[in-house]
Design a protein around this nucleic acid. Structure first.
Lengths: 361, 361
DNA sequence: GTTAGCACTCGTAAACAACAAGTGCTAAAA
DNA sequence: TTTTAGCACTTGTTGTTTACGAGTGCTAAC
């Protein structure tokens, strides 16, 4: 074994194989490489180098008489190598700007538009988590009467998030009842972080609301569910049918594996959750790097978006491991950065909000 | 041609073919029929009858040497024939009851649970539209201050639906501003139907809010969007991966056609909209009866749910035309009826709400 | 270290035969 | 008139064989 080290030429050949395979989805042979990528050297030389690359685990051969395909290690090496050199086209640049322009009156709508645009630009399925407010602090509760037997609970957090639900009671409740409940809630729970308001914590005010009788338990449960739902962010999937555009996903079993995951919102939330505070703009997971074994033939590129300097959600594309990494990562990086800039801009408008957001950390 | 009429025996044979085909997904031959379904007569006789059924258009043969498969006309005849005789198992009965039990504090959550349960019971993908409130009357608007630069708009309708969105303004706004705006809105728009509040209608109050300057147009646009979103019901898809369990959908093109439709919420809303007030509990669309040509190889079974006697949303399953109609329709009928009973129950609790709902028509 | 040459492997496509399932038709039986 | 047995015919499926081609690894010469 003359070499188990990754020389410059071997790396060149590896990257050529990867790029050719990404393009064609077919195993790449030595001849194709030296014709298209390495005009100076012969196919025999390439073959020798390919044998070394195979031994080192960067490429694999499906069977003896076929060409080589990149292994996960190969892809990982390729992705790590291309730093921030990814450029996106002027047209894509315009698309990003157009999507993000306009006032951010409604965050959810903006994120849906971004999701759709990314799916179109990358030709991949996009999974987006809507903002999660679990570590926001409660500003106050408001109870709005709908009619004698129903009221709406509105929860306002310090960073300006509002959530409401309607509660139907079997008992008549008037404005005085409602304001009594809300004053109890506000006295006890305002300024608390959303994820601190658990069922036991809520039950501690049971006595103060005791005169509502048998209504109190379901009422508290309802309040708990409302607050709890602020921490469980919605998941939006865009362009699911694009999965079937890739030959490696056309096999029924593989397709079913992917769609099963897309069916399972909880699993998606888990997969997109960023445990570590990575310093790169987007994270890439190739094959078995994914936590879910059903994604062992897939790759994910995830970008996080922030509000008030804190990550509150993610946007992610899923495709085959044979992904156009340079293009997709460049697009995801650009979109993520632009989105974060827009969000920061629209939440920085005034120092007041900013202060609250920071105090909210 | 001795007969172009559908005799009792021919119908029997037709239904036998359909049931066998639903079970096996393979063309059905004369021999299989007379062995399993018509022990009294010979295969030659069945062949003669099958020739007649073919001529009448109830069945088709993919090629000369294959058996017969039902045509759309055949399926339609079959579905029309089985009236309400569909029975569901005790286990399914229990599942329905379990899903619908518990207090209906949150309609959306209940519908999601129903959707998931139907998808599991029928082994089909389920598409559910959340309630659409476009013909509800506005009860009132409330503006809740979030901070100096943001407020929440809460819209309450007479049937108790509440919707909110947060508006960020580049200008400081205090409680007095907010109450001025809300009083204008309430004076002019309360008691109007949601779908009557169009942009031109909203612009008619422009003068009354003129002193908010350049804020007024985006503010009115925001209000419009909020109200408008109450008429555009959300669509929830459950069990999408089940599509791939059916051999007829495993072909890439067909699968892609289905998933494209599932990607397109607007199209789904359109497909589920019930134009006529059908008297049957569920509606069935077979093949080309569907409005979307991509569903020409699919069948849909749709059930509507009502609040206050008015249809506000639908639940629908999609599968191949080779659908287990009797089972699926029975389950859908049962679930739809039970759901509507629960909804009526929970909205009838008191005469007050009932009166308002009826007055809201 | 590089390369030409060559034997070897192995998947793919084409051609062909055997087969099985199912049909339509005819003529006899009921 | 209806039913049925029998049979020739059609056609998709399966399996086998063959040829081919793409690609490899190895050796020996450059």
């Amino acid at each position: 074994m003359t070499g188990t080290e990754l020389t410059e030429r071997r790396r060149e050949i590896l990257f050529a194989i990867i790029e050719e395979y990404i393009r064609t989805a077919e195993p790449v042979g030595s001849k194709a490489i030296c014709e298209k990528y390495m005009p100076g050297i012969s196919s025999a030389t390439v073959r020798n180098e390919m044998a070394a690359l195979t031994e080192m685990g960067y490429i694999e051969q499906p069977h003896t008489s076929a060409g080589r395909i990149p292994s996960e290690l190969g892809y990982r090496c390729y992705v790590n190598a291309m730093s921030q050199d990814g450029d996106i086209s002027d047209m894509d640049e315009r698309k990003v700007r157009r999507t993000l322009s306009g006032q951010v009156t409604e965050l959810e709508k903006l994120l849906e538009a971004v999701s759709r645009q990314i799916s179109e630009m990358t030709r991949l399925v996009t999974v987006t988590t809507m903002p999660c407010y679990s570590n926001n602090r409660i500003k106050r509760f408001e109870l709005i009467s709908v009619d004698d037997y129903a009221f709406a609970l509105v929860v306002v957090t310090k960073s300006g998030i509002v959530k409401n639900k309607v509660f139907r009671t079997p008992m008549q409740m008037d404005e005085i009842d409602l304001s009594r409940i809300s004053s109890v809630l506000n006295r006890r729970f305002s300024n608390l972080s959303v994820d601190r308001i658990t069922l036991p914590v809520l039950l501690s005010v049971r006595d103060e609301l005791a005169d509502f009788g048998y209504i109190t338990p379901p009422l508290l449960k309802f309040i708990y569910e409302t607050v709890e739902s602020m921490g469980r962010s919605e998941v939006v999937i865009t362009g699911a049918s694009k999965v079937l555009d890739y030959p490696e996903f056309c096999d029924t079993d593989t397709a079913k594996a992917i769609f099963s995951i897309l069916d399972d919102k909880d699993e998606l939330r888990r997969l997109l959750r960023s445990d570590e505070n990575s310093d790169s703009i987007v994270r890439t997971f190739i094959g078995n790097e994914n936590k879910n074994p059903h994604l062992r033939n897939s790759a994910m590129v995830i970008g996080n978006y922030k509000i008030g300097g804190k990550t509150v959600g993610s946007i992610c594309v899923i495709g085959p491991t044979r992904l156009n990494y340079s293009g997709v990562i460049a697009k995801m990086e650009h979109f993520t950065l632009s989105l974060n800039a827009v969000l920061e801009e629209s939440f920085r408008n005034n120092a007041d909000i900013m202060r609250k957001l920071l105090g909210d950390r």
